[in-house]
């Protein structure tokens, strides 16, 4: 356990020294805040864009506050996901190709600790960044529109955080399997996109599909929709996702164990 903490601390130190601890949360905050602001100014933006006949009146329906928050989640679901996949695409492959994995793994350190300490560090920063960003989105929604109940916000945040964590874990796993960082990021994003498209296009309910999480998160903001999602099926999806994360970690550990270095 001590060794795990030492590995974990090294990962945090690395994130501090590479400024990841600064730019990732700031990116999420800007991302989360800009959605309510852009929505608020949308009528002004449209009218100043010209092309409007003299005297035309633009009337956009004012979105409901929960819809504004849901559209922030959509932003996180695209750009946030991209950031998480890109910033972790070489987490393990770089340790392997640079030879540092070989330096560390000849010491009496378990492979499981090596992989999970890195995973925990990556996920904790991603979660913190997302929570900051989502809080910013929430704050601006309240300030510019109207309040949203915290319980619903919390539930949607937890569901969405699980989805981000799942994609972050996929990126880590692919970085252990694929030498090319770009290919690892692409694989993680493609898997995420595929699962999420499948969950919304196929005509039957997919409790087993983590790709359902973003929709569930957005849906849980809408009080009217609560009836449609029984809490049991939400729990099942969450559990399946957690199991998938565990399996991805087992695969990553196995990959490091069988090939700790490239050279």
């Amino acid at each position: 356990m001590t060794k795990w903490l030492i590995l974990f601390r090294k990962e945090w130190l690395e994130m501090i020294r590479s400024y990841k601890i600064v730019w990732l949360p700031i990116s999420f905050i800007v991302l989360g805040a800009s959605q309510p602001i852009a929505t608020y100014f949308m009528p002004d933006i449209l009218s100043s864009a010209g092309n409007m006949p003299e005297g035309a009146i633009i009337s956009l329906p004012t979105p409901k506050p929960f819809e504004v928050l849901a559209s922030s989640l959509q932003q996180f679901g695209v750009i946030g996901l991209l950031l998480i996949a890109l910033s972790n695409m070489s987490a393990l492959s770089l340790e392997r190709s640079s030879g540092t994995a070989a330096m560390i793994l000849v010491k009496p350190v378990s492979f499981v600790s090596f992989v999970t300490a890195k995973w925990a560090a990556i996920l904790s920063l991603s979660m913190v960044s997302f929570l900051f960003g989502y809080s910013a989105a929430w704050y601006y929604t309240i300030a510019l529109f109207d309040s949203v109940r915290w319980l619903e916000v919390l539930l949607s945040a937890m569901l969405f955080a699980l989805w981000l964590g799942f994609v972050g874990t996929l990126a880590l796993m692919f970085s252990s399997l694929i030498r090319s960082a770009a290919a690892a990021a692409f694989s993680a994003l493609a898997t995420a996109a595929l699962l999420s498209i499948v969950s919304s296009t196929l005509p039957f309910k997919q409790v087993w599909n983590p790709g359902r999480l973003p929709t569930l998160a957005a849906g849980s903001l809408d009080t009217a929709q609560h009836i449609n999602n029984s809490s049991l099926s939400v729990w099942l999806t969450a559990i399946v996702t957690a199991v998938a994360i565990a399996i991805a970690l087992v695969i990553a550990t196995g990959s490091m164990r069988s090939r700790p270095s490239d050279v």
Binding site: K10, E14, S98, G99, T100, A102, M103, V106, K107, P108, V109, V263
Partner: peptide, 14 residues
């Protein structure tokens, strides 16, 4: 590994 100290051909560091 507890008993071994190892210096690879080209040691790598952070």
């Amino acid at each position: 590994r507890e008993w071994i100290g190892y210096l690879p051909q080209t040691p790598a560091f952070y």
